[in-house]
């Protein structure tokens, strides 16, 4: 199977799962934004995405996307380290056109995964998981209130902002790199895709960051806008 035993094939898997995850985080950020405008509407979305069959299928596909992307990341990194050899350069310089993010994708991904674990404990474990187990799930507002409330916000907010920063760097390289890996790129499109990647990463970052700060102000300090 060329998707596992050729270098280009492995990168295609990385690329397709990566683009899928970019779409996911974008939808996620847009759905969170609903809570800023109306907590009632947000509650309706949370109920709609409870433990229905379509939500469970969606969750399974998403989990598979994450799992494949992460497993391939470690596999590719292992192979690449082996290809690099055990002797490292005494002096090495990063050319100007090479982005820092592109050389640190695994570390950035790991930071995102650490953030995701905290995030899953705060939300998924209180919302979808109890519903699957047949227990009473927490509502969207309830879970938001717990995570960004007076007791937890000073842990939650910095961890979330750090996670979003790592995500920004990760997407700023990953987005255009994904198109390059599936061969949809050329001399004209390379600079364009790099700019779109920056824009997309920034959009996702700003949405998430504004939401986290808004929820903190709302639930921890009782600010009403």
């Amino acid at each position: 199977m060329w998707l596992t035993n050729s270098s280009v094939g492995r990168k295609v898997v990385m690329s397709v799962t990566g683009l899928f995850l970019v779409l996911f985080v974008t939808f996620h950020a847009l759905m969170n934004a609903v809570a800023i405008f109306s907590l009632k509407a947000y509650e309706a979305i949370c109920e709609f995405l409870g433990a229905n069959w379509y939500a469970l299928v969606g969750t399974a596909v998403l989990a598979a996307g994450f799992a494949i992307h992460i497993i391939y990341a470690f596999w590719l990194t292992y192979q690449n380290r082996k290809a690099r050899g055990s002797d490292s350069y005494d002096v090495s310089a990063r050319p100007k056109t090479v982005s820092w993010a592109s050389q640190n994708m695994l570390v950035l991904g790991l930071i995102v995964v650490c953030f995701m674990i905290v995030h899953l404990i705060q939300f998924w474990a209180k919302m979808q998981l109890p519903e699957i187990m047949g227990e009473r799930p927490a509502g969207g507002e309830e879970a938001l209130g717990a995570a960004f409330g007076p007791e937890w916000w000073y842990y939650t907010l910095p961890i979330y902002l750090l996670g979003f920063c790592a995500l920004w760097f990760h997407i700023s390289h990953g987005f255009w790199s994904a198109f390059q890996s599936i061969g949809v790129n050329g001399n004209n499109w390379l600079p364009r895709l790099k700019k779109i990647a920056m824009g997309w990463a920034t959009l996702v970052f700003v949405l998430f960051a504004v939401e986290a700060i808004y929820f903190t102000l709302h639930f921890a300090f009782g600010t009403n806008f």
């Binding site: 050729s6 270098s7 590719l76 690449n80 050319p95 056109t97 090479v98 982005s99 592109s102």
Partner: peptide
Amino acid sequence: LAKMDELGFGNCTNTGACAA
């Protein structure tokens, strides 16, 4: 490509250091 993989070269991660 098969020969390249067989000889133990790594997977491209599009850093662009090569072209630079």
